[in-house]
Computed example of a mutant assay.
Amino acid sequence: MVEIDEDPQLGFDSDEDDEELSDSELQEAFATGLLKPGLNIPLDKPKKAINNVEGLKKCLAEFKKSLPWAERLDLTNQPAVDIIAKAEGKQQPSEGNEDINAEDDFQREMYFYRQAQATVLLALPKLHKLKIPTKRPEDYFAEMAKTDQHMQKIRKMLLLKQTAIEKSEKAKKLREQRKYGKKVQTQVIQNRQKQKKAMLSAVKKYQKGMTDKLEFLEGDQDQRPKGSAAKKQINKKGPNAKKKYKDQRFGFGGKKKGSKWNTKDSHDDVSGFKTKMAHGKGGKKGGKGGKMNKRPGKEARRKMKARK
């Protein structure tokens, strides 16, 4: 039988930890009150944390001696000046005395941001002094985290969204134009109805003898659109060269049949009569003395042939 000592954590302690207790021994220990009801799990003693500050500083000093700063890139500095607090006129805390609420996410992240900003301002001059480039060259090609196929899919999706937005905007503009066109059309119809109503009332007044003015007839001429007036002004200038040629060649239309018949006025008009042209006394084919060379008759020509 194995002896069981009382323990505040386990309820019992065994000298031989590797050996397992039998059922009878456990029952006897429970009967004597050495075991408590529930799970009995052995607990390891908590490890004691050793904060060896001197050893850590010694290791850090060894690292600094063995590696140059370009390989370590370590900097210890205070955060940059809080611009927002400075603009608001708040008093800036001294180095290391700034109270940061760790539970406030914005304040904590801003503190990290300011510290990184101050570190960059200190590191850049050192890197430039060591002639280490701090900007990416123009011909630098980095490996993308996403594949080209994935980026093509994203590009197609963006193009589809853009075309959908453009279509919706065009449809919206068309709807607005239609609304405006309908509004203008209804306004024009209403104006015409008003003018027609005013015209009918003026005509009725004139028919009943209530007025003797005909100004309502001149209103239509004044209300004509500007296009017709401009067209009239263009027509006043006269026809173009093509129209003039056609008029000269084909006339101005109207009745053609019987246009050359003599009338009483044309018969009595003798201003165009010329005595030289009358009875063959003159003309283009006139010979000496103004007489024309007439062709001999048929019998005279037959005799002339017989003589030959």
Results as ranks from 00 to 15, higher is better:
E3K: 15
E3G: 08
D5N: 11
E6W: 12
L10V: 10
D15F: 06
E16W: 06
D17V: 13
L21Q: 03
D23Q: 14
E25N: 03
E25K: 01
E25G: 05
L26N: 04
L26A: 11
L26T: 12
Q27L: 13
K36T: 15
L39S: 08
L43T: 09
K45Y: 05
P46C: 05
K48E: 12
I50F: 06
I50C: 05
V53W: 12
E54P: 00
E54F: 06
L56D: 14
L60P: 00
L60A: 14
F63G: 04
S66Q: 14
L67D: 04
P68N: 13
W69A: 12
A70C: 04
A70D: 11
E71N: 07
L75Q: 07
Q78K: 00
A80L: 04
I84R: 06
A87K: 11
Q91C: 01
P93W: 00
P93I: 07
G96P: 00
N97E: 15
E98C: 02
N101I: 04
A102N: 04
D104P: 05
Q107K: 05
E109M: 11
E109S: 06
Y111G: 04
Q117Y: 08
L122Y: 03
A123C: 02
L124N: 10
L130C: 01
K131R: 14
P137Q: 06
F141D: 02
F141W: 02
F141T: 08
A142R: 15
A142E: 14
E143W: 00
M144H: 05
K146M: 10
T147M: 07
Q149E: 15
H150F: 10
H150T: 13
Q152T: 06
Q152A: 08
I154S: 07
I154M: 12
M157N: 14
L159D: 13
L160S: 13
K161S: 07
K161P: 00
T163G: 06
A164I: 02
I165G: 00
S168F: 02
S168I: 02
E169L: 13
A171R: 09
K173E: 14
L174W: 09
Q177A: 12
R178M: 08
K182G: 01
K183C: 03
T186D: 13
K194D: 15
K196P: 01
A198C: 03
A198F: 01
S201M: 07
A202K: 10
K204M: 10
K204N: 14
Y206H: 13
G209Q: 09
M210A: 11
T211H: 05
E215L: 11
D222S: 11
D222M: 10
R224G: 07
P225I: 03
S228W: 08
S228T: 08
K232G: 04
I234R: 13
N235V: 06
K237P: 02
K237Q: 11
K242L: 07
K244H: 05
D247K: 10
Q248N: 14
R249P: 01
F250A: 00
F252I: 12
K255H: 01
K256D: 04
K256Y: 03
N262C: 06
N262F: 11
D269G: 03
D269M: 07
V270M: 13
A278P: 01
G282P: 09
G282I: 10
K284V: 10
G287E: 14
G287Y: 05
G289I: 01
G290Q: 07
K291S: 07
R295S: 03
G297E: 09
E299H: 12
R302E: 15
A306V: 06
K308V: 10
K308E: 11
